[in-house]
Design a binder for these strands. Structure first.
Lengths: 233, 233
DNA sequence: TGAAATATATGTTGTATGGCACAAAAATAC
DNA sequence: GTATTTTTGTGCCATACAACATATATTTCA
């Protein structure tokens, strides 16, 4: 895990949306149990099969949620950015983790024991509603993803992944460069293809002037074109 | 939709788990707004893109939740049996349906306007917790399914589907015949393959004495063998 | 009951994509 | 600053699976 405890006070504003649903007493209890942890690039936050114990909120950095499939092939099922919560689903389903979480880049994470969160939910419909909405949105996305990954062809899947990363992490100040720098392998694991095919297909997109590549930097040139490739599959 | 309203009183016991979370006042309100509907085989209950308005509970019959992908190819993402709730996710996520629902066989469905359910959830943490657990379990399954459908080979996917149907719908009195009779096309749509390949692969399983086929009746002969095929992919 | 539509079955062919090999480039370690 | 490891880039081959074609069986319905 290679984690390191750090002070948490300055990060509370990032979870203000959730805090606002809590009663004053709950708020106090939460402050007594919250902690902050730092993860380095590629650190594992939790592993498939582990028992869930904490609610995490990503304060800064980027995280991938992934699953190991047949023959050690890894599939990234979700990516998380600032202020996103994770790690709670398995606890709520009363299951071990079916996915793992690791840091794309250096991260700061707030964590709260799940037992406390569950108690709050039992007392507080507002907080329950907060998680219901998150779970409902994630489930819709997961179902969409199932069909995209199984039915679209390689080009469609890669185009979709690039657009998905753009939605998740946004662009840099130039309004066209993707603000996450992924390895070709991660791009492949996100798009359900081999690394070699991710490289090949990304090169093809560059040759077709859909994107420009500079190492791991990806710049969008023709977004409408990518959207079209993603749509037709 | 081809639906037909019918009396609902006798079906209340099927939703007793949910009813038990309600206050007496909520219970009364629910009874004023619940209704029951009958669907014939292959009737559509709701379509992808429709706006969600009701919480459904399947009283009898079997339902598929599916999504149309590229080139009209349909993917079954979930199957539902007696006492399962559906139709609520999209409303909770504040989205149109991303999947459709239709009847595998004649069905009776209880329905309650979602507006009422949401109001109850706001007042009642118990009911919120009920839906949180359902959503959390479904999301885990959906993530598992994403990886299975993308990474396993045809034989692994079909074996998994057969075992999945066994879990969902159980066996007949002989303790070995699957108690749902699906068309080869539905079996294909469940397993992410073409109809021709579902037919071929099922025949292969029969030739290998893993199952016995009699029309749409599927009898398990070597469950351990199927589990092995599903596991190795 | 017979005709039409639909579902099942099987063979043939084409192709998208995985697997492997190897080189070049880049990052990391020593 | 050189050596080692990791990542990126390409080519070639093998193959799993879709697409298509056609035949037979089964169901539907007039």
């Amino acid at each position: 895990m290679a984690k390191k405890k750090i002070p948490w006070e300055e990060y509370l504003e990032k979870i203000s949306e959730m805090l606002s649903t809590l009663s004053p007493e709950q708020h106090d209890i939460l402050l007594q149990h919250v902690s902050a942890v730092k993860f380095k690039k590629n650190d594992i936050i939790y592993k498939e099969g582990d028992l869930p114990t904490y609610l995490f909120c990503l304060i800064s950095g980027k995280v991938k949620i992934y699953k190991e499939g047949v023959g050690g092939r890894s599939q990234i099922v979700r990516v998380l950015g600032e202020t996103e919560y994770f790690g709670y689903r398995a606890y709520m389903a009363n299951e071990p983790f079916v996915t793992g979480a690791s840091a794309f880049e250096p991260c700061i994470v707030l964590k709260v024991p799940m037992g406390i969160i569950i108690k709050f939910i039992q007392e507080n419909p507002q907080l329950g509603w907060f998680f219901i909405q998150k779970l409902a949105r994630d489930l819709g996305q997961s179902d969409e993803r199932t069909v995209s990954l199984t039915q679209k062809h390689i080009r469609g899947r890669l185009a979709e992944s690039l657009l998905f990363l753009k939605e998740s992490y946004g662009l840099e100040e130039d309004e066209s460069t993707l603000s996450i720098y992924l390895s070709r392998e991660d791009l492949a694991n996100l798009s359900n293809m081999t690394t070699a095919n991710a490289i090949r297909t990304l090169s093809a997109f560059a040759a077709e002037k859909l994107v420009a590549i500079d190492g791991r930097k990806i710049k969008f040139i023709n977004i409408a074109g990518l959207e079209n490739i993603s749509r037709i599959g």
